[in-house]
Design a binder for these strands. Structure first.
Lengths: 190, 190
DNA sequence: TCCTTTAATTAACCAGTGTTCAATTGTAGT
DNA sequence: ACTACAATTGAACACTGGTTAATTAAAGGA
C-alpha cells in the first residue's frame, strides 16, 4: 500500500545517525526510540532496520565515532604549539569541553550501565584513557605514577559527570572548569 | 474474588521501601517497576498505590532517607576521635564508601537527569554539599576557597560515578579510593 | 449481629517499546 | 517493456509500564 520516498534522498546510515545524534542531545539511550528517530527523518520505523540490525548496533556506530573524535582532539592538543604546562591545561579543558558538548554521548561512552550497550564498546574507553594517560605522562614536569594520573582522569570525569544534565553548554561552566584544571595542574608541577 | 493476606503481616510503607531498596541494588529508577516491587513482596501491584501516591513519591521517600544517612555519616566522622588530617581522609573515604555502598541511590541523589524525580529532591543535594564543604573548611590546615573545596567534591564524585556500576562493593576499590583520598589531601595540606 | 472502615486483588486502560515481515514501490539494467 | 532488486512501508506481535477503579475480604466497634 505504501509509497516510497523520492530516491533523490534515499535514507542512508549517515542520515539515521545524524537524527539519532540530535535526539541524543535531549534524551538518553533508553528514552530515544527507533520510532522517534524514524519520525524525525520522515521515514517509517521499519526502514531503519534495513540499515541497522538493531538499536544497539545503531548506537554503537555513534559511539565509535565519538571515541574517534575525542582521541583526535587529544592528539590535536598535544601536537599543537604551546608549553608543556599549557598543553596539559588544554588537555584537561579539552576533555571537559568534549564531555559537556556531547553530553549524551559522553554518558554512553563513560557512564552507561546498560549491558546491551556496554558489550558493544568493549575496550574503547580504556584505549582512550591509555592515550590520555600517556600524554599526561609525557607532558608533566615530574614523574607521575599510574595511580596519580588515574586520579586526574577521575577528577576530570567528576567535573563532566556532575554538570552533565544540569548545564547545557561548556561555556556555562567555563570558568569553573578552568579553575578545576588549575587545581589538577598542581599535581603535575614539581 | 481475591483474598487478603493474613493481617499479622499487613503491608506497610516500610516493607515497600525495603523491597524497593533491594531492587535498587541492581537496577535504576527506570528499570524498577511497581509490578516488580509488588512481586517481590508477594502482593499485587495495586496494593502499593494504597500506600504511595505514585512511583515518584515512593522513590522520593527513599531518597530522603539516604540524604539523611549521608549527612549523619559526615557528622559521625567529624565528631569522632582523630587528627584533623585523619578526619579529612575519613571524610573523603566515607563519601566514596557511601556512594559505592548505595550505588543506585547515589545515582538518584547526585546523578539523575529525570525531571520527575529531580523536582522531588529540590535542595537536598546542595544542603549535603554545604555541610561537607563547611567541614572540609574547618579541618584543613590552610584556608581553602570555595572553589578549591568544590574541586575536592567534584573529584570525589568522579571516583564514585566512575566505579558506579562497574564494581559491586566499596572493598573492590578500597585501595584505589585510599590513593585518591591521599591525592586530595595534598590540596588541603600547607 | 450488622455495618463501616480499611486493605488488598484483579481486570482493564492507555501508551509505549523493539523487532519482524509480507506487501509494495521506484529505479536501473537488459 | 519487462524484470530483478533494493528500499520502504505499515500492520502485527509480544511485550512492559504506570495508573485507576470496581470488587472483595477481613477486622473492629456498636
Amino acid at each position: 500500500m505504501a509509497a516510497r520516498k523520492a530516491v533523490e534522498k534515499e535514507l542512508t546510515r549517515e542520515m539515521i545517525m545524524d537524527a539519532a545524534r540530535d535526539l541524543f542531545a535531549e534524551k538518553d539511550y533508553q528514552q530515544v526510540s527507533m520510532r522517534q528517530i524514524a519520525t524525525k527523518l520522515n521515514y517509517s520505523h521499519g526502514a531503519i532496520y534495513y540499515h541497522f540490525k538493531n538499536k544497539a548496533e545503531l548506537f554503537y556506530a555513534l559511539v565509535k565515532d565519538h571515541f574517534l573524535m575525542l582521541n583526535q582532539r587529544i592528539e590535536e592538543i598535544v601536537d599543537g604549539e604551546a608549553s608543556n604546562e599549557e598543553k596539559l591545561r588544554k588537555l584537561y579543558l579539552g576533555y571537559i569541553e568534549f564531555g559537556l558538548t556531547h553530553q549524551n554521548h559522553y554518558e554512553i561512552m563513560f557512564m552507561i550501565k546498560n549491558d546491551e550497550v556496554r558489550n558493544f564498546m568493549s575496550e574503547s574507553p580504556m584505549l582512550t584513557y591509555q592515550n590520555f594517560a600517556r600524554q599526561v605522562s609525557k607532558l608533566s614536569e615530574k614523574e607521575m605514577s599510574i595511580q596519580e594520573i588515574w586520579s586526574i582522569f577521575i577528577s576530570l570525569h567528576g567535573f563532566v559527570s556532575h554538570y552533565l544534565g544540569h548545564v547545557t553548554t561548556f561555556d556555562d561552566v567555563k570558568r569553573a572548569a578552568e579553575f578545576h584544571a588549575n587545581m589538577l595542574l598542581r599535581w603535575t608541577s614539581a
